[in-house]
Design a protein around this nucleic acid. Structure first.
Length: 540
DNA sequence: TTGCAGTCAATATC
DNA sequence: GATATTGACTGCAA
């Protein structure tokens, strides 16, 4: 019974007592294999104490209070001895300590402190694989992630970027050696970190690695060494290849031939990368704004009209949705950090939102009367039409429409009140106000949101934002307002509030569009969740 | 099945 | 050459 209850209604970590945390630690360890082999140290067994110690060690809430000094690694943790030597308990413990170390300021890392010995660069010779975290096995990183307290992902990436640029270290090198990721992933990660609480265990790994790296006093030197070694290797290769005159490199990447029928050598198997034309993207975006979750039928239609594979359209929607979500995270973070000084991870904190699973919709609350369903009805024509209508020209512009009067329900979605200019999609044109679904992507809100966001990104001084209702300034992120309030605030932040209206310039701001679309998506899900149509009610 | 998270890797851009 | 963008893929969960 307890298990059932725990599995179905887990309490947030912060609400758990030491005792209450124990089962979760056990589960985590079990998941990590630490307690596998049926040796769950349930009572009495040796590992019992381990759990206790682990728990006492890692209290996310205490994080800030840890004394900033102790050298990053405990003797145990730095000992190069990988797995074997350390008992699982020790390893968990030391790793936990490791991550918990407040990260030393950037400078610290640069000027080698009383570094701890071990780990001559020699050991890192293998690029392709991430550094073994100062002596810890790969498994350890997982433990560490599991045990890690909440980390300030935004802060971490910020510091990493600083260190990398200050030391002229590339993302590729850093990614391959430290994170085990490719350059593109690193770039993405550094530019758009998700808040800790939105990350899966897997997703947290890179951040833990970054944190550990930041904590390593020799981090820069090690990377520099790697860099040197790579260079050397490269030169060597270069030499040899020159002599062989072998074009070992550049495997004649997919130029045109690829899709040709003639199966040439092997690499041509590579599919050429699909590159969507701007008009196609526009059309897809427009379609997305009307329906973030198009039905298969719609997808089909879009695909035919745009002359794309359905899988491409599907992928595009998936990618677009998730990327928009990410942008919102960032905004939240930025807004949050601006609004309140230190509170590093604050954003996450707030996420106490009920359904953790509900995931991203970072901005809760929205909701609009009719949602997608209705949209569905008309959708076919909409996007498609738009698509063909081509360049979308006007269509997009409509966003600039002055934000619709702050009306109660369904502010966001409604894009209806298109400015005259906007070529209305038939959907909207015919859609009477209430009908709104169609316009799920209300132009009104978007502009405002965009404005807000622009301001945010532009690093406007907190003060600036102050003017607006605090809620908008600090979206859900900041404080832990009551659910309803949060909803309201995020809503406001999304819509930006009347004031913003005039602000936006007419050029169609993609962010604005994204936002509007995102709102649709949120609405869609909320409705889905509610399973029934409940128009208003979530006042803002 | 569908949607999402996390990545890769080809390209585009700086 | 480094970094940013983005279509596609994999694995997982509901």
């Amino acid at each position: 019974g307890s298990v059932s209850d725990m599995l179905s209604r887990p309490k947030p970590w912060s609400k758990l007592t030491q005792k209450g945390r124990e089962p979760f630690i056990r589960m985590q360890l079990w998941l990590n294999g630490e307690l596998g082999q049926g040796v769950l140290p349930v009572q009495g067994q040796q590992q019992g104490p381990v759990i206790q110690s682990v728990m006492s060690l890692q209290d996310p809430l205490l994080q800030g209070s840890v004394s900033s000094e102790s050298t990053p690694k405990t003797s145990a943790s730095c000992s190069p001895a990988p797995e074997s030597p350390m008992s699982s308990s020790e390893s968990v413990k030391s790793l936990t300590e490791l991550v918990q170390q407040p990260c030393p300021s950037v400078e610290t890392s640069k000027d080698g402190k009383p570094p701890e010995p071990s780990e001559p660069p020699a050991s890192d010779s293998q690029p392709a694989t991430p550094l073994p975290l100062s002596g810890h096995s790969a498994l350890s990183i997982q433990e560490l992630v599991a045990m890690s307290p909440e980390l300030d992902t935004y802060g971490i990436t910020k510091r990493v970027k600083e260190v990398l640029t200050d030391n002229n270290l590339g993302q590729r090198l850093f990614g391959e050696t430290i994170l085990g990721l490719t350059q593109g992933s690193v770039s993405d990660l550094l530019a758009r970190p998700k808040p800790w609480h939105k990350l899966s265990l897997k997703g947290r790994e890179p951040f833990v690695r970054m944190q550990l790296w930041l904590n390593d006093p020799n981090n820069v030197e090690k990377l520099m060494d790697m860099k040197r070694m790579e260079k050397k290797a490269y030169m060597k290769r270069r030499h040899s290849s020159v002599s062989d005159n072998q074009p070992c490199e550049s495997p004649s990447v997919g130029i045109d031939y690829s899709q040709g029928a003639s199966p040439q050598p092997q690499h041509q198997l590579k599919k050429p990368r699909v590159v969507l034309a701007p008009e196609e993207k526009e059309a897809l975006k427009r379609a997305y704004q009307q329906k973030p979750y198009p039905s298969p039928k719609t997808i089909e239609e879009l695909a035919t009209q745009l002359n794309l594979k359905t899988s491409t359209v599907i992928n595009w929607f998936h990618n677009y949705r998730s990327r928009i979500r990410r942008e919102l995270f960032i905004e939240e973070i930025q807004a949050g950090s601006q609004g309140q000084a230190g509170a590093s991870d604050s954003p996450s904190a707030r996420s106490g939102r009920a359904a953790p699973g509900s995931e991203g919709d970072s901005c809760d609350g929205v909701e609009a009367p009719e949602g997608p369903s209705a949209a569905d009805a008309e959708e076919p024509s909409g996007p498609a039409a738009a698509a063909k209508s081509q360049g979308g020209s006007a269509l997009e512009e409509r966003h600039e429409a002055p934000p619709r009067p702050p009306e109660k329900a369904e502010p966001p979605p409604s894009r209806s009140p298109e400015p005259a200019t906007a070529t209305t999609t038939e959907a909207q044109s015919r859609a009477p106000p209430p009908e709104g679904p169609a316009d799920a992507a209300g132009p009104a809100p978007s502009p405002a949101a965009a404005a807000r966001e622009d301001a945010a990104t532009s690093a406007a001084p907190p003060a600036a934002r102050e003017g607006a209702p605090r809620s908008s300034a600090l979206p859900s992120t900041s404080a832990p307002p009551p659910a309803t309030t949060r909803r309201a605030s995020s809503l406001q932040s999304l819509f930006g509030l009347p004031e913003a209206a005039g602000a936006r310039d007419s050029r169609d701001n993609p962010l604005r569009k994204k936002k509007a679309a995102n709102l649709n998506s949120i609405i869609h899900r909320l409705e889905k969740a509610a399973s029934r149509e409940e128009p208003i009610e979530w006042e803002f």
